[in-house]
């Protein structure tokens, strides 16, 4: 469904993505993990055409993505920051986004699920952060698309909404959709993710099942495994483009990135 080939992107002198090769073909939930600034959002935004890569190719349904964006009708995206035009009402915003897509929307059920009924006629500028995030979720989940991309979906949600969100994510997986999720909440990853992609400094350091990651660094929880990765350097980037010109060396039988020496 989605293939990334040698994707690179720099912002000024900062290399955010360095020759990423990835494919999202199987249904299921992939957690894209990494510390702040590791390139997670840039990776997801590249798929959506919001960030234009310097090099590499993105294929959607086997075709290079079209700059006019018609392929985006098959993708639902939850942006990391939920901020909307302050003077529009919630119902107006939902109608507006609905008017951009040909598909049927299931906004009514989501509005009920997330308890947004009472605020439908409120202006978006008057909503709390958590309520705005719920509106954000309604706008994202109201379409039946084969791909769903969620950038920090749990930010500011109360426990009830969080449970509803998890239910929706699980339903989407059962419906055979491809979900890409970034989050800093490792318990959520342990609970939901079928696959973990770990990014660091724009390279992929791990791509596999969450259980494999724990096994590899011999830690009992994903949180500890990730912390271990960040501080200890048990793993090397899966691909190191020759053009990057970085020196790697072997230590204890592992290829070690120079900046992550134990």
């Amino acid at each position: 469904m989605i293939q990334l080939h040698q994707l690179s992107k720099s912002f000024g002198r900062l290399e955010v993505l360095r020759g990423i090769d990835l494919a999202f073909d199987q249904p299921g939930i992939t957690a894209v993990l990494g510390p702040n600034g590791s390139g997670k959002s840039t990776l997801l935004k590249s798929i959506l055409g919001m960030v234009i890569p310097d090099a590499g190719q993105i294929l959607f349904h086997g075709k290079p993505i079209d700059p006019l964006g018609s392929y985006r009708k098959d993708i639902s995206y939850l942006p990391q920051i939920a901020r909307f035009p302050e003077n529009l009402r919630v119902a107006e915003l939902i109608r507006m986004i609905e008017s951009f897509r040909p598909q049927e929307s299931s906004s009514a059920a989501l509005i009920r699920d997330f308890g947004l009924g009472p605020v439908l006629q409120s202006q978006l500028g008057h909503l709390s952060g958590g309520t705005r995030q719920k509106v954000n979720l309604v706008l994202t989940l109201m379409y039946d698309t084969p791909v769903i991309i969620l950038d920090e979906p749990t930010a500011g949600l109360d426990p009830v909404a969080l449970v509803r969100l998890k239910d929706r994510i699980i339903q989407a997986r059962e419906a055979g959709k491809i979900l890409l999720v970034t989050t800093h909440i490792m318990s959520l990853v342990e609970e939901l993710a079928d696959r973990v992609v770990f990014l660091l400094e724009g390279r992929i350091y791990f791509d596999g099942k969450p259980g494999e990651l724990k096994q590899r660094v011999a830690e009992p929880t994903l949180e500890k495994a990730i912390a271990n990765l960040l501080s200890g350097g048990h793993l090397s980037p899966i691909q190191l483009p020759e053009s990057a010109g970085r020196v790697t060396r072997k230590m204890n039988g592992h290829v070690v990135h120079p900046q992550y020496n134990p």
């Binding site: 006019l68 985006r72 009708k73 993708i75 995206y77 986004i97």
Partner: peptide, 13 residues
């Protein structure tokens, strides 16, 4: 931020 949401819709820039 809202522009980002619009950019994720099937609309030309």
């Amino acid at each position: 931020e809202f522009t980002e949401l619009l950019l994720a819709q099937p609309l030309p820039r």
